[in-house]
Simulated scan of single mutants.
Amino acid sequence: MHKAESIYEDELDSAYDFPRSYLKALEAAVGDWIIYYEPVKAGARGYFAVAKIAQVIPKPGVAGRYLALIEARSYLPFDKDVPRLLNGQPFEASLADAAGAPLKGGAVQLAVRRLSTGDFARIVDFGLPQDLEWAEAHRYDKHAAGLQEEQLVFQRPVLERLVRRKYRDVAFSRRVRDAYDYRCAMSGLHLRNGGGRPEVQAAHIRPVEMNGSDSVRNGLALSGTLHWMFDRGLISVAEDSETILVSQNKVPVDVVKRLLRSNGKLMRPTDPRHHPHPENLRWHRENVFGQGVSDGKLLWD
């Protein structure tokens, strides 16, 4: 269970902060997958992400508290949040009475609770559909509906989807672009091609191969050109998490004026929970920005 305004220092894609009362349960979960859940009083999200626990350690400097460290590259937000109830019944069997009606109190209030394999698979299937890649590829195809029945024959197991890079890239891209309302965070432009497909791309701030996560907070929605420039260290974001930095010795002033917002500020998502994480931006400034271009000579029109 996670509250966005929690007093605990959770970083969902890296660590979960919890008290001693849940120590045995989380130690038993090391090496296994977990699902994040938002309690009723905290908001409407319900189940919203999945991750894998790598290790449990005492929280440095805080007696009686512990951290469940999340395995690198395992965190993945759901494509769509999963409601607490479906047709009036909980997704978790332990939260329902014999007739399937939701229980009150007891396990419902536990911040950490066990999920059966069936409940886990059912929640993940709802939040990360098996046909997500196909659905995205045909999202703007007027004839997609008639073809979907054939596609659904090819089922993929839950865990295979959670670790397969191609599937995760599609899920990450959909969530990041949606968070930015399909606008480029640096130009502010909302471009779509003739078929209605948005031209904006989802960029990892810290690359996956460098232990960057698939959290929306490790993503920026960027146009193709600005994505290319960001990945090659020609542009970045300052310590204020808002001011766009430009490698002045590599990018001409007139190019900057054409490509970036006039105020020089990053356009962030309306939901603060999706704002770029300052640590991810810091990593990019220190490890990518100003490091040069690796795939040839720069040509500016």
Results as ranks from 00 to 15, higher is better:
residue 170 V to L: 01
residue 173 S to F: 01
residue 181 D to S: 14
residue 160 E to G: 13
residue 160 E to H: 10
residue 189 L to I: 03
residue 185 A to N: 11
residue 185 A to H: 14
residue 230 F to N: 06
residue 154 F to V: 08
residue 202 A to C: 02
residue 236 S to I: 03
residue 155 Q to P: 00
residue 239 E to P: 01
residue 187 S to C: 07
residue 182 Y to D: 13
residue 139 R to L: 12
residue 233 G to K: 05
residue 135 A to Y: 07
residue 200 V to S: 07
residue 200 V to W: 03
residue 228 W to C: 01
residue 188 G to A: 10
residue 232 R to Q: 11
residue 137 A to M: 08
residue 173 S to D: 06
residue 193 N to I: 08
residue 144 A to Q: 14
residue 142 K to V: 08
residue 187 S to A: 07
residue 141 D to V: 02
residue 219 G to E: 04
residue 240 D to P: 13
residue 201 Q to E: 15
residue 240 D to W: 10
residue 151 Q to C: 11
residue 234 L to E: 05
residue 181 D to C: 08
residue 164 R to N: 12
residue 175 R to N: 15
residue 238 A to S: 13
residue 184 C to H: 14
residue 228 W to G: 02
residue 169 D to E: 10
residue 161 R to E: 03
residue 145 A to I: 06
residue 165 R to N: 01
residue 210 M to L: 13
residue 147 L to G: 02
residue 214 D to S: 14
residue 197 R to F: 00
residue 214 D to C: 03
residue 187 S to M: 05
residue 160 E to D: 15
residue 219 G to D: 07
residue 206 R to T: 14
residue 205 I to Q: 05
residue 169 D to S: 04
residue 211 N to E: 15
residue 218 N to E: 11
residue 177 R to M: 14
residue 237 V to Y: 14
residue 231 D to L: 10
residue 201 Q to D: 13
residue 163 V to L: 02
residue 168 R to I: 02
residue 183 R to C: 15
residue 203 A to N: 08
residue 192 R to S: 05
residue 172 F to H: 09
residue 171 A to R: 04
residue 142 K to R: 12
residue 223 S to I: 08
residue 187 S to N: 08
residue 138 H to L: 15
residue 138 H to Y: 13
